[in-house]
Structure formats: structure tokens, C-alpha cells
Design a protein around this nucleic acid. Structure first.
Lengths: 134, 134
DNA sequence: TTGAGATTTAGACTAACTCTAAATCATAGG
DNA sequence: CCTATGATTTAGAGTTAGTCTAAATCTCAA
């Protein structure tokens, strides 16, 4: 069902990789590698920690999952692979996806200012989420 | 000379903290904690690794330095404490500061989309720096 | 001069990965 | 059906960046 973008010899969507992808796809939130390891172990009891990391790298390079790195603590993984931005709640730590429609112009403006040849932009909003505001 | 923003009992700009601040202030680039440790040791030979980290936390909380965390590898420190954005070269890894004048509106737009009460925005451009472009 | 609190120090510890080498698996050729 | 070649997985050791701890040292007001 999932289309592999990545080609090259011997890069298959194995049982383990499928389990990891399944875990990420069925979750609404943004699990860490460790969360994924625990959930994947429920589907495939023998799966190892290293394999989860290997699978995450494979899936990321294949464009099937998106890795979010804030410097704080562990990377989080996201089933949403289209370009988008993140809002991080300063109270509860919740991470929410959103998309800024003006992203393309934004990238151009940032490129003009920095003199870089642009490849991608990512915006992070820090603030208080609706739940914590209430 | 540096104004302490942070007050509260017993939070002094000690010799060690001043050395750390001095290292950051005299550099054009964005050193890691380890770079800072090595440079600070040249000024204050006995300074310990832990003290550099303690000082960096102190200086950050006092608003005297800015910490940049990309998920990749170590945090970097920046003498520029005003709000600004970063461009990261995908070829050579160089990190450059720039400022987007429309940041305030941007924050509002992001807040609208995400429904968060905004506190700060940060934008990261990935691309190729002028040196690598040439 | 003293002593209470702040700060520094060395080094142990931790979290989050990454690496390694041996075992296992998948499959194309015989 | 066998086999062997390369890809993949595994357990566990290693690494990196940073935090913690407890003892030593410093500072300064009383």
C-alpha cells in the first residue's frame, strides 16, 4: 500500500519497517523513537531497539515519515510528510502541526535576507495551547 | 559593563561567568559548549566543564547570550540576544543569523493557524550559503 | 573573624542515539 | 529443491552532549 519513493538495491519495506510505519500512521501525536519502540514491540515482540532506529532512518529517507527535531530531548516522528510548521506549548509541551499558506513567499524573503539559495523553511511558534489557555 | 537583567539573591557575574561571556562575545561564529570550554580554559586554566555549562545556563537566563538548538548535534551559543532567525547551509553546515522584519505579523499569522497564544516565533531556512553557491 | 549561602570542581551518571559483528532472512541461480 | 550472496536484524557495547552530586572553596555581611 505505501509507495516506496526510494529505489536502489535491496531496500525493502520489511515486516519490521512496516510495523514501525504502522505505529506512526496510527497515532495522532508525535511519538519519540522510544514510544515507537514500545508500540512496535507489541506488534512484533522480537523487534530490537536498533531496528527501530534503522527503520526510522529508512522511512525518513524514503519520504514516508517526517522527523521533528527540537533541540530539547528526543526527536519526534510525524506521519505528515508535507511541508508544515509546528507550535510547541510552553506549559504542557504539546506539539501541534499547522501550515502557513504564505510559506513560499516567506522562504523567498528569508533567502533575500540571508543571501542563501533556499531549499526549505520551517517555522516554530512557541506559546500556550488552547487547552492550557483555558 | 554587561548589565545583569536577572536579579534575585546571589546571582553574580563571577570570574568564570565573565570568561564564558567574553569567549562568546569575541567570536563571530556560533561556538558549541565544548568550543567555549576550550577557549575559556585559555583564559582561566582551572575552569571546569560543569562550570561552563552552569555559566551558560546562567547567562542564558540572564538574557546575555542566546542558545540555538537544532536537533543535530550540540547546542550553539550566540552573542546576539535580539530576536532573529537562522539560515543553515546544507553543504558546509555554516549557521548565519538574519532577521525577518515581518516577524511580528508572522507570529500573529502562526497564532491564528495554530490557535496558540503566541510567545515567540523562530524561522529556519535551509539552503546553500553564498560561499558554497559560488 | 565567622559562618551561611552561593559557586566551583571532578567525576560519576544519564538519555538518546550510533556502531559493530554475528546471526538470520530472502531470493536468484543452479 | 539447494545454495550462496547480499540485505536486514539483533544484542549489546560505545559515543556524545549534557546533567547531577557532594565535597571544597569563595564571598561578604554581621
Amino acid at each position: 500500500m505505501p509507495k516506496l519513493i526510494k529505489t536502489g538495491t535491496g531496500e525493502k519495506l520489511t515486516r519490521q519497517r512496516e510495523a514501525v510505519l504502522g505505529v506512526i500512521r496510527e497515532r495522532e501525536d508525535h511519538p519519540t523513537a522510544n514510544d515507537i519502540f514500545e508500540a512496535a514491540r507489541r506488534r512484533l515482540p522480537g523487534i530490537s531497539y536498533a531496528t527501530v532506529y534503522n527503520s526510522l532512518r529508512f522511512l525518513r529517507e524514503a519520504g514516508l515519515v517526517h522527523e521533528i527535531k527540537f533541540g530539547d530531548s528526543a526527536s519526534r516522528y510525524d506521519r505528515e510528510t508535507d511541508r508544515h510548521d509546528h507550535a510547541l506549548c510552553s506549559q504542557c509541551g504539546k506539539l501541534v502541526d499547522f501550515d502557513l499558506p504564505q510559506a513560499a513567499e516567506l522562504m523567498k524573503a528569508a533567502a533575500r535576507r540571508s543571501k542563501f539559495k533556499p531549499e526549505s523553511v520551517h517555522l516554530t511558534l512557541k506559546g500556550v495551547c488552547p487547552d492550557c489557555c483555558a
